[in-house]
């Protein structure tokens, strides 16, 4: 176990290192921030000073090494716009995005799993057919359009829910959260649902497929031959067997939800990282972009690790030590 964990950590470090190269080079290619930050009629001398101050006069590889050296000490650079360490700016926005993503994740499990079980056990029931047809919309409709439709329906026509911002927040351990106030919950509902819709559909379809497959296994028949109650067969024998693919999808889905909450946050003006990154790209605020991308990479690496660890809890046949 310890060896496995060490090896995984080492692999993770390599992945992160490779990503720093890609991110750094990529960000350098998309445009020169100096063009945006300095007014076009500034003198050559002023321009030159700005370029030197930002280190852009150095060759790319040296810029990269400097960046890497600073990054190891936790310094990813200062945002050009906010004039604060980029990491701090990102971390300030992180709780809002995490709150949104966790809400979406919970929704996808709480809605997707029961509906998937229903559709799996009663495949010919009209409700199941409706669920399956609906799930196609869930993962094929573009998220921005669904977001706009949600606003149209629930904010404009019905006037039930607010359409922008986080609403009233409460500070818990120094972190602002919305879900503890009624106003905050109202603000959270639409963006969370919007973000969860794709995940709900994925979880639902995977659950259904898993149930259909597992039901024909001999061990389910044997469980019935033992005279077990149907509830126990469903929630212990079937569910535990189909959880592995669901954990994978939910785990990686969480990463996606955090990383690509960009659209939802923009539509609902949710003050999270997604909105920050869009703004940063518009003004070529390189340190913010780099810090954001690095954080997402780390997030995915951590999620993958957790998913692998969960496998061993779910399936005794998976032994991490023996993985070569």
């Amino acid at each position: 176990m310890a060896t496995w964990l060490l090896r995984r950590m080492f692999q993770a470090a390599l992945v992160i290192l490779a990503m720093t190269v890609l991110v750094f080079v990529g960000v350098n290619v998309i445009g020169n921030p100096v063009d945006i930050m300095i007014s076009p009629d500034a003198t050559q001398e002023v321009r030159q000073r700005a370029i030197e101050a930002l280190g852009f006069d150095q060759p790319l590889w040296r810029q990269y090494l400097t960046f890497l050296g600073n990054a190891v000490t936790g310094d990813i650079g200062k945002s050009y716009v906010f004039n604060q360490p980029a990491l701090d700016v990102i971390l300030q926005r992180l709780p809002a995005t995490l709150e949104l993503a966790v809400s979406a994740l919970l929704l996808s499990i709480l809605i997707g799993l029961p509906l998937g079980l229903l559709a799996g056990f009663r495949p010919d029931h009209p409700t199941s057919r409706a669920i399956m047809a609906g799930s196609i919309f869930g993962f094929s409709l573009p998220s921005f359009w669904v977001g706009l439709m949600l606003i149209m329906t629930f904010s404009v026509y019905l006037g039930w829910l607010p359409s922008i911002g986080r609403g009233q927040t409460v500070s818990v351990l120094g972190i602002e959260v919305s879900f503890l106030t009624l106003d905050g919950l109202k603000h959270l509902a639409l963006p969370a649902l919007n973000l969860a819709l794709y995940q709900i559909s994925m979880v639902l379809r995977l659950t259904r497929a898993g149930v259909r497959e597992t039901l024909h296994q001999d061990f389910i028949k044997f469980a019935r031959a033992k005279g077990l109650r149907p509830r126990r067969i469903v929630f212990v024998h079937v569910l535990k067997n189909i959880l592995i693919p669901i954990v994978t999808v939910v785990g990686l889905g969480f990463g996606h939800t955090v990383a690509f909450s960009v659209v939802t946050e923009t539509v609902f003006a949710w003050p999270g990282m997604g909105k920050l990154i869009i703004d940063a790209i518009n003004v070529l605020d390189r340190p913010i972009i780099v810090a954001y991308l690095m954080m997402i990479v780390v997030l995915f690496v951590v999620i993958n690790l957790l998913v692998d660890l969960t496998y061993t809890l779910l399936d005794p046949r998976i032994r991490l030590e023996t993985q070569e």
């Binding site: 296994q217 028949k221 019935r224 033992k226 005279g227 149907p230 024998h237 535990k240 779910l314 046949r317």
Partner: peptide, 28 residues
């Protein structure tokens, strides 16, 4: 259900498939 496993029991053909792979023997 009340008869199965209680008054009438069954043994299956393939022992590799009849026990649930993710549950302990004692659970089952």
């Amino acid at each position: 259900r009340q008869l199965r496993g209680n008054r009438i029991a069954m043994i299956f053909q393939d022992p590799m498939m009849t026990l649930n792979p993710v549950l302990h023997i004692d659970t089952q």
